[in-house]
Design a protein around this nucleic acid. Structure first.
Lengths: 339, 339
DNA sequence: AAACACCAGCTAACCGTTTTGCTAGCATTC
DNA sequence: GAATGCTAGCAAAACGGTTAGCTGGTGTTT
């Protein structure tokens, strides 16, 4: 394609003038401006982003690193982030760490090489505690999304996991349930840990405690939750209600129920924190918390762009969003206590 | 960060030697190589992709443009593409045209500016018929995914939509259904058109024809399908079976059924082409065709990388994948013809 | 021993922008 | 009319790599 020099030649001006027109960075007389614009149009010129990045040290690229692209929660984040990034005039480079620290390391190196202007990161590992530095040794502006890492000094966007779990658990207890089980996420993640803690806290506040064999790890995965749920529900004294820590796992649990011939909510009540898009279309409607992913994403980008423009002059900000309980038909009052 | 010159100074060699070591592009004696590697390590050096792109004219970026990121089908494509792109040593830049031609135009201009090495495009508009040219005026290697545009000379990866629709329709007719309705996608898309054509073809082959008011446009959207389904099923003589053209719409239809108090498959049989991930976990299991998205994506990348390396020397290739029918429990044999 | 081939490693040009001086032309002031 | 200030537009130097072409030292051939 045409270069800035081709345009300059055709318009009989210098490359500096063309640049000034393209970037609106200096006054150019109307006459020259017209000539330049005509030449740009004739030659179908578009500035090379590579040359620009090299000179300016900014790439107009924002990296999004998610922990599990197969999870609809993150798919939704990707969707929202693409829109927000485009709205701010950047382009989105997408990476999937697949919950593996070594992938995360590789990806962060690649992001540095691409000199991305900012990073939205769903962290997998504490590795991230060593923030990424760019070509000037500056830290690349980063927003941690959804999860946090201890002792982090970067901006973060999170959901109040404890509150989410507490809301759901209280709802179940309000229905009279006492034998409540749970399928948790990985406990080394704040999302996994917080949701379990919130549940325990809520139960203890009413003098209850889940039976040890009613608390199982589901890894935030559909298939794991499926088998764990089967196991959990076929034991001698199964729980009468189940709190599932995320949307994907809730789907797995529903599948397990169907395969076991259990009716929800007649045989067991199910409620979850987090949901997956589209799940609202199926019956019984799941009682769950909804997390404002779109708002969270927009806020993440606002913080990120602000940090890109203002550098490290401003302190790390931690924005916590509140989940809201959405009541469906997947929970019923406890009737026959003994069962 | 450190530049190649810093590394050269520290290792007491020229930048050319550093480059040779980094790219393995020329023989360097073991001694110098060691010194260079040590310096790279000490300075935490990583080559600037911007400078590289500028000089080489290649950016190691592959653009993926999907028509609707909110659609789980495309979310799955994104997931598969990220993995495939990374495996080939590229990074993925993601765009969402949201089914709008003007977005598509803007995006393609941006892709050109970024000098992406290749494009995987789910086309929205015939605009794409004018292939994108790069900085040398060469066409940017492009693979059209899922849909095609008439008279296209680029590589394409598609699914056999006619066959998919035919399989599903035949299945419904084999169960005895005659009054079969359909909710179609947009008919200007090959995916929409082909799936309707396949259905009509299959029915006509048995001397049948759907009633005009049993054929409705659902725009491939959940909400549209929901309202169209409500309308379709509450009319005087509703169909006894419904063929839904994609997975998202099937979800909408299921929701409409639930709200209308209709039982599937007792009151009506539902089948679709295409599915959405996770839908398999819910009851009744949907009878549908499955489309090999992962294989399709991998093949798309194989074609794309091949074209990046070999240029226009090789003719356009059109790879058509075959869908397979997966039978669930959402369809029942026709019992009471009159209803 | 001269002629030559070979090759490791270097010098420097180049990729396409942006941006910092600088220049030259005009208007204003005394 | 000389001195000054202003400003539109230009020339040229970066930015950080890659690579063609060169150099000089060694080994081989005659």
């Amino acid at each position: 394609m045409a270069t800035i020099r081709d345009v300059a030649n055709r318009a009989q001006v210098s490359t500096a003038t063309v640049s000034a027109v393209v970037n609106d960075s200096a006054y150019v007389s109307p006459e020259l401006r017209t000539r330049v614009l005509a030449a740009i149009n004739d030659l179908n010129y578009a500035p090379s982003q590579a040359a620009r990045s090299l000179k300016r040290g900014r790439s107009q690229l924002i990296a999004l690193v998610v922990a599990d692209l197969a999870n609809p929660f993150f798919a939704r984040l990707v969707w929202a982030a693409e829109a927000a990034v485009a709205a701010w005039g950047y382009s989105l480079v997408l990476f999937n760490s697949d919950e593996k620290p070594e992938n995360e390391r590789r990806i962060l190196a690649r992001i540095r090489a691409l000199s991305c202007d900012g990073i939205i990161l769903v962290p997998v590992d504490v590795v991230t505690a060593q923030p990424q530095r760019d070509s000037e040794g500056e830290q690349i502006p980063t927003v941690l999304f959804g999860r946090t890492v201890e002792g982090q000094k970067t901006d973060t966007i999170t959901i109040d996991n404890i509150s989410a779990a507490r809301q759901v658990t209280n709802y179940l207890m309000d229905l009279g349930h006492v034998r409540i089980g749970t399928i948790t996420g990985p406990l080394h993640l704040t999302t996994g840990r917080g949701r379990l803690d919130g549940m325990l806290e809520a139960m203890r506040a009413r003098g209850l405690e889940p039976a040890p064999n009613h608390v199982r790890a589901g890894e935030f995965r559909e298939d794991t939750a499926y088998s764990v749920a089967r196991e959990l529900l076929t034991q001698a004294e199964p729980p009468t209600a189940l709190y599932v820590a995320n949307g994907v796992m809730a789907l797995g649990v529903m599948r397990a129920l169907a395969d076991l011939g259990l009716k929800c909510p007649d045989d067991i009540s199910i409620a979850s924190t987090d949901t997956i898009p589209g799940i609202g279309g199926l019956r019984p409607r799941l009682t769950r918390t909804e997390h404002p992913v779109i708002d969270m994403t927009n806020e993440a980008l606002r913080l990120l762009v602000d940090r890109i423009n203002r550098g490290t002059s401003v302190d790390a900000r931690n924005v916590v969003f509140q989940p809201s309980l959405v009541v469906g038909e997947s929970c019923a009052p406890l009737r026959n206590l003994g069962k």
